[in-house]
Simulated scan of single mutants.
Amino acid sequence: MQILLYIVVTILTFTIMELVTWLTHKYVMHGFLWYLHEDHHQPKYPHVFEKNDAFFVIFAIPSIILFYFGIHPNLNVLFFIGLGILLYGIAYFLIHDVLIHQRFKWFKNTKNKFLLGLRKAHKVHHKHLGKEEGECFGMLFVPKKYHEQYKK
């Protein structure tokens, strides 16, 4: 029964991370930490890394801390909260950096309608080069209209 609890906690944490991401993206990245996120909104940033990549470290820290306290002194629920955050981070990397921004050319020619909808929503987000007037701050759960245009 405890394994079922750990699975539910991991999935629930993964799901909640989408809300955390949306809030962080809208109010932190497009707010007081815009100076770290701004280069991400500039066309053809000339470096391999962006200042925006610092957010990977910022989001990894709670996961690492939860892993540590989730195994000391014994395995506990904190480990699985950290696991949910880690799995979301992996999904974020694959969707955001690989699929959407093509930093790696792994899913360049996808025909998957769901993934195309995610890509479209993010491109709409990036049409704004400044921190104001943004839209589509989420990553996995975007407005339905972006998926519907690929159903035909």
Rank of each mutant, 00 (worst) to 15 (best):
K108I: 09
I71R: 15
N109S: 13
L33P: 09
Y92C: 06
P143S: 06
H128E: 15
K26E: 11
E135C: 11
F137Q: 03
D97K: 07
L78I: 05
V20D: 01
V48C: 09
L4A: 12
T21D: 12
P73V: 10
H41F: 02
E38V: 06
P143T: 00
V28F: 14
H72D: 09
E38A: 14
V57P: 00
Q42F: 08
M139A: 04
K152G: 14
Q42R: 15
V8A: 14
N109R: 10
F137V: 00
L19V: 14
P43F: 13
L78Y: 14
N109D: 15
V57E: 02
S63H: 06
P46H: 11
H72Y: 12
V57W: 08
M139E: 10
L5E: 10
K131T: 04
K131Q: 12
Y150G: 02
S63A: 15
F49V: 13
F93C: 08
N112E: 10
T110I: 07
F104A: 12
L83K: 08
K51C: 07
L86I: 04
F14H: 02
K113S: 14
M29N: 04
L115C: 11
G82E: 02
I64V: 15
G138K: 00
T24G: 14
T13Y: 05
F67N: 00
I85S: 02
V142T: 01
V98Y: 03
G117N: 02
H128W: 09
F69G: 07
G89K: 03
I3V: 12
H72G: 02
K26A: 04
L86N: 05
Y146G: 04
G89A: 13
F69R: 13
L118V: 07
N112W: 11
K123G: 07
H122K: 11
C136V: 02
F114K: 09
W34V: 01
K144F: 02
F14S: 08
V57C: 00
M17N: 14
H40W: 10
L12I: 14
K144W: 00
K152S: 12
I81E: 05
W22A: 01
G82M: 10
Q149H: 04
I58T: 05
E148A: 10
F107G: 10
V77I: 15
V77F: 11
F141D: 00
V142M: 15
M139P: 01
H40R: 11
F137P: 00
D97L: 01
I100S: 03
Q2E: 14
R119F: 08
K111P: 07
L12Y: 04
Y6A: 06
K152D: 06
N109P: 02
R119D: 13
N52V: 01
V28T: 09
E38C: 03
L36D: 10
K26L: 11
F56E: 01
H41K: 09
I3E: 12
G138C: 13
H40K: 05
L115A: 12
Q149A: 07
E135N: 03
N76G: 05
V77C: 04
H147P: 06
G134A: 07
M1V: 12
V98L: 06
G130S: 04
W106D: 05
V98H: 08
G84C: 05
T13G: 08
K127W: 06
V28M: 10
K111G: 11
F79K: 07
A91Q: 03
I65Y: 15
I16K: 05
I100K: 02
I81G: 03
T24Q: 03
K51M: 08
